[in-house]
């Protein structure tokens, strides 16, 4: 039986949907919605979006010190003289730097690994910015290395690997406290989180 031909999007629209569909967390339906939203935008706004994408790809580079994404090298954080250069906080991704900066309680420097050791996915230490970290720490004034990888199995393995690699250097290695989230509920907390919260308890 032959029916009506299935209507398809114009080739240029289909291409936009296809490209949006490649973004993380964007399925085919979301890609279609975004594409049709972009089509409805005033031309100025659509061009601003296109320009922003183009500029970010042209200008953003890795900071040669902390490996964070930046428009300048070194990045504004690394060149800020008010920051404490004796502390370096190691994070997995650039977004983690933004999360820690929102706290306003850390005034040291950062080092971004751009991933985490994940043997099951074939990601080893050589795929991260670890060599850059070791080079940076060698012969500098850094006194404390704060490891702020996620408290997952892979994050913990990465933290232990870094600890082993910097073992010979004269610096203090710490990692962020593990425990209960603000607004959390003891009843629903898992045993590992609770036991670590107990280990890290503080005097009132």
């Amino acid at each position: 039986m032959t029916g009506w031909p299935v209507p398809s999007a114009a080739p240029s629209v289909a291409r936009l949907i296809q490209e949006l569909n490649k973004l993380p967390g964007i399925g085919s339906k979301s890609a279609q919605r975004l594409a049709y939203h972009i089509i409805k935008l005033p031309p100025d706004e659509a061009h601003l979006l296109a320009e922003a994408i183009s500029v970010v790809k042209d200008r953003v580079i890795f900071c040669s010190r902390c490996q964070n994404l930046s428009d300048t090298d070194p990045c504004p954080i690394c060149t800020d003289e008010r920051r404490d250069a004796t502390q370096v906080c190691v994070v997995e991704e650039p977004l983690d730097v933004l999360a820690l900066e929102r706290t306003h309680c850390y005034r040291g420097l950062y080092h971004v690994l751009h991933g985490v050791i994940s043997p099951i996915n074939g990601v080893g230490p050589e795929d991260l910015k670890l060599k850059e970290l070791l080079t940076r720490l060698d012969g500098t004034s850094v006194q404390e290395l704060i490891i702020a990888t996620n408290p997952t199995l892979e994050g913990e393995a990465t933290a232990m690997y870094i600890r082993r690699q910097v073992g010979q250097l004269p610096l203090k290695v710490t990692h962020l406290a593990r425990g209960l989230p603000v607004g959390g509920d003891l009843e629903y907390a898992d045993e590992v989180t609770l036991s670590r919260a107990f280990q890290g308890r503080q005097e009132l």
Binding site: P119, I120, L153, E156, A157, M160, D190, E191, V192, S195
Partner: peptide, 20 residues
């Protein structure tokens, strides 16, 4: 959780053995 094996996570050799 029925069993969490916390000591395994605290050692790099244990964690990677578990991942394997």
């Amino acid at each position: 959780i029925v069993e969490a094996f916390p000591a395994l996570r605290m050692r790099l050799e244990g964690a990677t053995g578990g991942m394997y």
